[in-house]
Each structure stands twice: as structure tokens, then as C-alpha cells.
Amino acid sequence: MLSFFIIIILISIIAGIIGAMVGVGGGIIIIPILVLLFHIDIKMAIGASIVSVIATSSGAASAYLKDNIINLKAGMFLEIATTIGAISGALILSIINPEILLFIFPAVLISSTYPMIKNIKQDIYTNIQNDKISNYLELNSSYYDKQNKSEIKYNITHTKLGLFVMYIAGLLSGLLGIGSGVFKVLAMDNIMKMPIKVSTTTSNFMIGVTAAASAVIYLVRGYINPYIALPVMIGIVIGAFIGTKILFKSSNIYIKTIFIIVIFAISVEMIARGLHIL
């Protein structure tokens, strides 16, 4: 039992570090290890993954809020779309076969990395104008980049399309319990043209709320096992703490590169689940 706890804590530390840096939960690492190594039922693995998402979110966001890097207003506004999406996902789960999505979304994810790879050397989007919604809600903001040692101001555009992708992100997390963080980052970076560090940290802030809704459902149905959840939470909190320290010192290109790797890993994992390898 002790060795099981130690392995889970160590894996969760790694999941927490990566999750805190690129704005995703640790499910990508935790689910395959639990299923393939310990032969744990996939639903219980997803239950553990949801707990890890909340732990990453709260752990990382508390540090990022202190350093004013998260765009709190944009995050709160976009949460409307993600939470409605999460509920829609839970509601249509009995109607449609979510396994089809496991083949569709990897294609969407991988193709959406193209603009990011193309612009990987571009540090910050320039000449972006606020659209009507972000003007009305005053969503534009600034943050101090510790790596560049400069104050970076940014505007936010295409808010409506961003909201739509956020809805899809919520839908996915309700249906599959995976992938909600990557879609959030893509919506903020690719579409709304927010700086990558603001996108990943704001995503971190948001994923906890999206996951909390489904977590209650999983908890009541008995899919959250404390034997797994407790070591996961311990590891994730430690990892998220380390991850936030690394993000502050990292360049935008570095964060983007790790994010693109995570997208490919998530896509492979989705296909593996679709083929029942996971």
C-alpha cells in the first residue's frame, strides 16, 4: 500500500508541474498510469483525474492570482460558457455515444496547433483591438512578465467565437472528463489573441470550476476513491507549486512548445481510449 501511495504521489507531482505550466489538469498523465499500470477501472481513473484537475487549478491559480497574471474578469466571463457546456455534456451523455468524439477531437486538436506552431517565435500578438464585448466588460488588461522584465499590455478580440470554443471545452469535460484545459488555452491564445502565459494561467483558474460540477456527480456515484484521490491531491499540490515557479521564469516559446507536446499526447490518449486500449 505504501509503495502504491509513493508511486501515485510521484506521478501526480509531475502531472501537477506540467498542468500548472500549460493550464491543463493532470488527467493526461494520471489516467493512463492508473489504467495500464494498476488496472484500475477507467471511470475511477477519470474520477481521480477530475480531482487532480481541481487540485491543479486551485493550487496553481492561488499563486498566479497573487502575481496578477490571471485575467480574472475574462476567466469569470468565459466560465458561463464552460459550465453550460459541462452540463450539456452530462445531459447528452445518455443520448449520444461519446466514443465517436474520441476520434473527432484529436483531429480538431492537432489541426488547431498549426497557427501556434506557425507563430511560435512571435512573443506577443501586436495590433489587436478590443471587440465590443471586451470593451463593454473592460476585459483588456496587463501583466508583469518576470522573464522579459516588462509590463505587457494586451487587448482581447473575437470574444463570441472564444465563448463558443469555451462551450465546446465544457462539453468535452462533461462527456469525456478530459481535454477541457487545452481547448480553453486554444480559445484564449489562438482566437482571442491573449498572451500565452495569460491564457494558460487563466485556463488554470477556470478548469477547477468546470471540473467541480462533474466532480460532485462522480463523487456521489462512487467513482472517487479516497485511496487514489488522497495521494493524487498531495502530489498535485506539490507539483502545481513547483510548476508556478517554473512558469514565471520560462519564455513564451518554451510554454508554447510544452503546450503543443501536451496536445499531441492528449490526442494519442483520446484515440487509445477510442480503440479501448485504455
Partner: peptide
């Protein structure tokens, strides 16, 4: 279950 419930409640409380 108490730490799990507190963890889930934190973002909702936020």
C-alpha cells in the same frame, strides 16, 4: 472523504 469534499467545494466557494 473530508479533504476530497473540501477540494471540490473550494472552486464553488470561490
Amino acid at each position: 472523504f473530508i479533504p476530497i469534499i473540501i477540494m471540490i467545494a473550494t472552486p464553488i466557494l470561490r
